[in-house]
Computed example of a mutant assay.
Amino acid sequence: MGWKVTHGVSLLQGEILVKTRSHRTAGGQVIAQLYLPMARSHLWQQLTDYPRWVSYFPDMVCSQIRPAPVELDPRIQHLYQVARKQFLCFAVQVEIYLTVREQTDQAGEQQIWFTMEQGDFLDFAAQLTLQDWQGGTLLTYRVQATPTIPVPTLLLQQAMQFELPANLRVMRQVLCGRSLNFR
């Protein structure tokens, strides 16, 4: 990714870096990075508390762990999430069932992989990565999705460009407390 090298000062000052691009013919992909001035181990405990995600993402109204089918791997969980969003004169609600896999690699980097089982998307996948960096943690969040309703790709990318940073600012405030001095 290389952002943390070229934009390190911006990240440390609280900026959220975002890149968007198209995904498939009617979808979008976004990659965002932010710095959290907290230990990775503390953040990991909070981020893997999936019902708490309703406090991180203002439009998410439900995030529940579902009973697993016979699951032998404790690093895998199953989630049900619902989000509601108001766009000008109409409201949209989306539901998604996810398989969630948690892993830590040899370098200590921790990742959470979200894969759609079923839901209101043609496809959906996300990855959240935590890395130790500058006395805190660098969070990288990658999402790619194709909605079932036809939305112009440019409009979808613009929504991702503006919505994800706003959501990640809320996430950072909840995780770190409101006393942060980022702009």
Rank of each mutant, 00 (worst) to 15 (best):
I76K: 11
D132L: 08
Y141E: 08
V54N: 05
Y35R: 02
V82F: 06
V30N: 00
D73E: 09
W133S: 00
R169L: 12
H7G: 08
Q81S: 09
Y50G: 06
Q110W: 07
R52E: 11
L12H: 02
V170Y: 07
K19M: 10
V143M: 13
D132S: 12
A126G: 05
M116P: 00
G119N: 03
W44P: 01
M116G: 03
D73P: 03
L12A: 09
V94Q: 12
D59S: 15
R169K: 13
Y97L: 15
N181R: 15
T115N: 12
D123Y: 07
D73A: 03
T129I: 11
A26K: 14
A126L: 06
K19W: 09
E163P: 07
A126V: 00
V70E: 11
V18R: 07
V92D: 04
Y56T: 04
L88P: 04
Y80T: 08
A91R: 15
T20N: 02
V170C: 14
V94M: 11
G177L: 01
L122Y: 10
A32C: 15
Q33V: 01
W3S: 07
G136S: 05
I112M: 10
P69G: 11
R101G: 08
T20G: 03
A107T: 12
Y141F: 11
L36S: 00
G177H: 03
T140H: 00
I16W: 00
R101E: 13
L175H: 02
I16N: 01
F57L: 14
F124Q: 04
T25N: 12
F87I: 15
R75T: 14
E117L: 14
I96R: 08
P152N: 00
S55Y: 13
F114R: 04
M38L: 14
Q77M: 12
A39Q: 12
G119S: 04
E102D: 09
